[in-house]
Write a protein that binds this DNA or RNA. Structure first.
Lengths: 347, 347
DNA sequence: ACACGTCCCGTAAACGTTTACGATCCTATG
DNA sequence: CATAGGATCGTAAACGTTTACGGGACGTGT
């Protein structure tokens, strides 16, 4: 089966009518529509995407750009695959397909994005792993292509985004630890270049301030979000003369390394030091003691993300142009036993 | 900047010459080529992919189809993102872009693939997570689209594929355990529907046979490749009256759950029971005791995979059509301490 | 009988590229 | 001087689809 032309002459109908029939347009007899659909099915005809795209300037494909940098590969940990599930559950209802666009390690994400936009293989884009200053926002705004960011940025220029509630997480964690009597609370986070690192530590500082605790910069450890990172965090904290009594880890993967390092020094998590993790993953509850952490449904986050995007696309939104939407996605505390003790009372 | 036509009249050159200049074709003066390239750069012109694809029937995009099924999401654990890095390092040299095509959970992979093929948004395909019988091979063979499978299949029909050396892994594991005095060796694997599950257990049986050990079906545990799965494997094995003295786990993630369950019963891995894991991931060495497992470079696997694919594409291979290539990808033993004891001698 | 509206369909242009073909100019060679 | 041939460029067709436009057939109301 070559193209619509062959299909048309096989049916002895004009090519225009065939196209209208296939696309559910009016001005075509219901009976001939049946015939066309049947013949297309039988001959296995599917419209050539290039031709269609060229004509109507649309591809029916949404792109999800990911960086998969070295840093990410170690910890993203199916984050994207799970979000993708939520995205697709929405997109498939609109006959949109999702493709993931992985930016090569050795290419500048900005240049990569520019190429992808220019190639016009997607109608809209989702960018992720936003930097604190991120030129991609300007680029996408300038090209008028609909997009949503997964992650805030200073450069968002009032564009739509969705982000995890880092602030809520760190506030809740600090409150909880303070209630247990802790005053020296350490925190780990990635570099403040990436927005997560900045926002997380900022929230931490405000939370401490709220409790009247002075902030000690030595208790903020920048580390990779991996087992090695957790190991290193523990290592650095153990070196301090005035050690913290509690620690907030980012990415629960770090807890594995953290546990190991402190236990090597005879320190038992959940008894000698309190540990809170963010965010929940299956293995958190397999640690000993089980890790107190924060959970959320990444699938549902994907659903929300998709809806935000669609609401910004003329063809899929009734009240376009609507306002851009900025959403902070909540997480729920999952109490474990890694912080379940009152400071000063060792069981 | 609209299209090549505007670029041409801006330069006061014919559209044909501009196209030739941009694509490095001959029959164009070197100086005018410079001018064209400069103007294109300055005006930010990039060829519209749809037009180009329509004309020359090629998209310069390679697709990597992944299923991201529930099963996979829990354990694939950046497997694909790492392989992707290797793929892109090859593709980028040929000006090919890679997109990941995630099949929605609720859609049949075969139907999804059919849609993607028909849409013609990729020039070639990589399929993964092959089933033991997998209709996708026939479909791709029939449509003549170049492809490689990541994973063997009964249905491969002599197509190209690459797969991890499950056989070598399980042989090596069994040899090692037998050398340490073990005779009752359990194994975990996913369902034999997926090819990995089948091949792995088959190799296990042959390895036992080689050592004259009779195969006890009770020692083959089908479980999900996750922490929960590992927990469940331990649970089932503990219920046996004639317990195994060693176990081979698939996916080192399972070891976390396995360790926890047996330790709940006072059994210490590496002392009371030997554990070998497949395949290596960062966290294996953060377990206590460190897990003996098998490692490989998934990046390099991606490179090989890309080269196999390219060798099957007329435009990128000098001796096309070459033979199809089936590659078994080796893994290397990483001795830990989880099996470092002689049976009968408890330290 | 006439006007008019509805339903259905065919025709052809347009989307942005690439490329086969032919035209032009210039130089070297006889 | 005639001619061949190379270098460089312009012209136009083609890729497969969608869609604006117009036209024929038919029914309905005056």
């Amino acid at each position: 089966m070559k193209g619509i032309r062959q299909l048309a002459e096989h049916l002895d109908i004009s090519i225009g009518t065939v196209s209208r029939a296939l696309n559910g347009k009016p001005d075509v007899n219901e009976e001939t529509r049946k015939r066309v659909l049947a013949a297309a099915e039988q001959l296995g005809y599917v419209a050539n995407q290039s031709g269609r795209s060229l004509r109507q300037g649309t591809t029916n494909v949404i792109g999800l750009m990911i960086q998969s940098s070295r840093e990410t590969v170690e910890n993203s940990d199916n984050f994207f695959l799970t979000v993708t599930g939520g995205l697709q559950s929405v997109f498939s209802r609109h006959k949109l397909d999702l493709v993931m666009l992985p930016c090569p390690h050795d290419e500048d994400p900005y240049e990569y994005l520019k190429r992808m936009v220019a190639r016009r293989i997607v109608d809209a884009l989702i960018i992720s792993e936003t930097q604190r200053v991120d030129k991609r926002f300007d680029l996408l705004a300038k090209t008028k292509i609909p997009f949503v960011a997964l992650g805030r940025s200073l450069s968002d220029g009032n564009a739509s985004w969705i982000d995890l509630d880092f602030d809520g997480v760190v506030n809740s964690a600090v409150d909880r630890l303070v209630a247990h009597g802790h005053r020296r609370i350490a925190i780990s986070a990635p570099s403040s270049d990436i927005n997560l690192g900045f926002v997380f530590v900022e929230g931490y500082r405000r939370a401490l301030e709220r409790h009247g605790i002075i902030h000690d910069p030595a208790l903020v450890i920048r580390a990779k979000s991996s087992e090695q990172g957790g190991y290193q965090v523990a290592d650095e904290l153990l070196r301090l003369e005035d050690r913290p009594t509690a620690v907030i880890l980012i990415y629960e993967l770090m807890a594995i390394g953290f546990y190991r390092r402190v236990m090597e020094s005879g320190i038992i998590p959940g008894r000698d030091i309190a540990v809170v993790g963010f965010r929940e993953a299956p293995r958190a509850k397999f640690l000993q003691p089980p890790l107190t952490c924060f959970r959320t449904s990444l699938h549902d986050l994907g659903v929300e993300l998709a809806e935000i995007l669609l609401s910004g696309m003329p063809a899929y939104s009734e009240e376009y142009p609507g306002k851009t939407r900025q959403t902070i996605w909540p997480l729920e505390l999952m109490p474990g036993e890694s912080d379940a003790f009152e400071l000063g009372t060792k069981k």
